[in-house]
Structures are given as C-alpha cells and as structure tokens.
Write a protein that binds this DNA or RNA. Structure first.
Lengths: 211, 211
DNA sequence: ATTTGCATTAACAATTTTGTTAGATAAATT
DNA sequence: AATTTATCTAACAAAATTGTTAATGCAAAT
C-alpha cells in the first residue's frame, strides 16, 4: 500500500469521525460505527488515533478553529461605516453558520460535557477576538457621541446578534415542528431569518428620530 | 416497607434520573449512576421502570410539558394592550427559563437524537399554542393597521423573542468564557439580558417616529 | 536481495452497561 | 393466621464498546 493510500485511509477515518461526532456527540458516537463508515477495521482507528478521546480531540480542535473564525467574521470590515460594518458582520456570520449548521450545538454540548475544555476554547477564541471587541467598543462609543447610534455595551450587542443568528440553527428541528409551514423551504427560511437578524439589530442600534 | 417508603424510593430514582438525564443527556446518562445517586440498587431501577428508555420517557414527557407551559407563558395576558402584553410575555418566558435553565438544551438535543420524538412534541405544543398564535397575529395586524406597530409575521416575532431569551441559557458556559467579566455575577447577567430582550423586541415592533 | 519499518488484520481481552432472575422479606388481603 | 401480592437484594448474564496484540503483508531504503 502506497503512502497516498495510507493518507486516504487516515483521512477517511477523520471524515467519518467528523460526521459521527458532529451528529451524535462524543457520548453517542461509536468507534466501530466510525470505522465501518470509513470502510476500515476498527483496529485501524486505534492504530492511527490511539483512543476515541484522541480522535475526538482532533475533530474538536478543528471545530474550535471554525468557531473562532466565525467570531472573526462577525466583526466585519473596520473600514466600513459602523452600521454597514455591523450589517456585514451579521451577514458574514450567518453565512458561516449556513455552511456549518451543526457547529454551535456541537461546541456547546461538548464544552458543557467536559468543562475542562473551556480553557482550550478561551485560548482559541478570546485571545483573537478580545482586542477586536475592545476596538469595536471604541467605534461604537464614538458613533454614539456623534448621535449616530444608541450607546451600547458591545458585548450585549454581540449577544443580541449571536442569539438571533445562532438559535434558528440550534433549534431548527424544534422550530420545524412548531412553525412547519414557515420552515418548509429550508433555504428560504434561513434567508428570511438572516434579513430579520439585520433588521432587528439595526433597529436596536439606530436612534429613534425625534420630532 | 410501607407504601410511603416505596413511593419515596421510586421518587428518589425519578429525581436522580432527572438530574442525570438533564445534565448528561440520554447517551451520557448511566443507569447505575442514577441508582447510586438515588441510594438504591440498580435492580430497583429496572423493577420500577423496566428499561433506561422507559425511565427516560417519564422525564422527557415531564420536560415536554414544561416546554409547552413556557410557550404559553410567552403569549402574555390577552387583555393587556399589545405592547404591554408582549413585554409581559417576554418577562414571563424569561423567568420560566431562569427556573429551568437547562430545559432548552435538553429538549433540543433529545429531539435531534431521536427524531421520532418530534411527533410527541408537535402534539404537546402545537395543538395548545397554534390557535393562540393565530389570535396574536390578528391583534398584531389590527395594531399595525392603526399604525401602532410595524406589520410583522407573528412567527418571526416569536423567533426573535425566543432567540434572545433562550440563547443566553443554552450557551451560558461558552459566553462565560468569552465575556467572563460580564457573566461573573450570574444573576445580574441574566437580569440584564432579560431587560435587553425586552428593549430589542420593543424597538423591533415600534414604528420609528417620523418628522 | 535483504533488511527495516510502517500498515493491516484477525483474534482476543477488559470493562462497562443494561437487563434478568430466583429467592428472600415485608406488606396487604382474606 | 394463611395466603397472596408487592418490594427488594445479590448474583448472574448478555451484549456492546473500547482497546490490545501477535502475526502478516508490503513498500521503500540499504
């Protein structure tokens, strides 16, 4: 067997593991199912990755990086005017979620199941985004002083935004049961939600015009 | 052993099961841990509930009912003026979540893990809330015609509201890592989020005053 | 060509986890 | 009191699940 074919097998395991872990979580995933889906004996899985735990860490790290990049996306282009920038951030972030709809649920569940992983996450995300959030807070304050927007804590704004963007993905199967007619066309539903996120955040930020 | 003591044992198992299932989910829960936490032999667990699956169903049904009642809470008192009513709905719903912070995650995860349970949920929730949502849509339309609020699809409004209210609970451990200073005082954090939900939804609904 | 080292397999093993059962004990019913 | 029924325990059992290992094959390096 050539080197290329070896890499293919290892890759196949990683791919199958990603699928299994993302949909069933660590506890629900079975190493035998992963091996079977990858088309290899389950001994191979242990040969390449030692333990279920270590294989999982590979996937988790990958997804943590994705999570971090989604937090970067939300910040938008700092050269744009503030409101345009935030609108762009919302759209970027939402599009990122459309490409990775099960990402939030996976991260949340696994961080809660193993709180010791919170440290990894803090390092992965906070260090990258912390200074950028601070920068955005400055820009917000300036715009507020000029009367362009309401004065707001950037963290509260981010939470509003993340809530509106993330929950439809997190709770899709539940929403689908309650508002089935609304979600029938999945693509259209998410496009509508994206627009609604923008609208709601813009209204949260814009100063009401007084007479 | 008297009847009362028997009920106590059965109750102890249910209580321990609730704790275990809510925090670890079906896959992560162990019947032996439940029995141990309840202070009984694990044979007793099988004696009273036959299987892990059946014990789980008991807990799930209980939580589905709670979920349904939280959806009722969100609708508020129909006799209040529309905006007051919606504000009250948000606060009711949020308070309900404060008393049951892990409810949304539990329901979402278990419904996704076993899609056949979606039917149970539909019956539990949609039948109760469906007509009431339709009623609220009427009230919204009337108020919009009178120019008091923006015209909105009630389902989109509900999703905005549920998103803002639910996500802080769903993602608390993650948020806690990113905005640790904000969440340090857990109670204060949630009170602030409650107010923010109200503020954001009110701004989403109110017509901007034109000159 | 021989050696070296990685890749692979099949069989095995340990542990965990759920579930059962037969028999003992207590409670309720007659 | 005798009988019946429900509760309880300890031991056992089956299955699933993760992980190991010894033997084998194969490719590349020497």
């Amino acid at each position: 067997m050539t080197k290329k074919e070896k890499q293919t097998k290892e890759q196949a395991i990683l791919l199958a593991a990603e699928q299994e872990f993302m949909t069933k979580g660590y506890d629900g995933a079975r190493t035998t199912s992963i091996a079977e889906a990858a088309g290899v004996t389950h001994a191979m899985l242990h040969y390449y990755f030692r333990t279920k735990e270590q294989l999982f860490e590979r996937i988790l790290n990958e997804k943590m990086a994705l999570m971090a990049s989604s937090f970067m996306a939300v910040l938008g282009d700092p050269n744009l005017p503030l409101l345009k920038r935030i609108e762009q951030g919302i759209v970027n972030h939402f599009d990122c979620l459309m490409r990775n709809p099960e990402l939030p649920r996976f991260i949340i569940n696994e961080v809660i199941a193993h709180p010791e992983r919170q440290k990894i996450m803090r390092e992965n995300i906070l260090n990258l985004t912390g200074p950028l959030f601070a920068q955005l807070q400055n820009d917000l304050d300036s715009a507020a002083k000029r009367g362009e927007v309401e004065h707001m804590d950037v963290r509260m704004l981010m939470l509003d935004l993340l809530s509106l963007n993330v929950l439809p993905f997190l709770a899709y199967p539940v929403i689908d049961n309650i508002f089935s007619d609304l979600t029938g066309d999945r693509r259209a539903f998410f496009e509508a939600r994206k627009a609604e996120s923008v609208e709601t955040i813009m209204r949260r930020l814009k100063k009401p015009q007084t007479i």
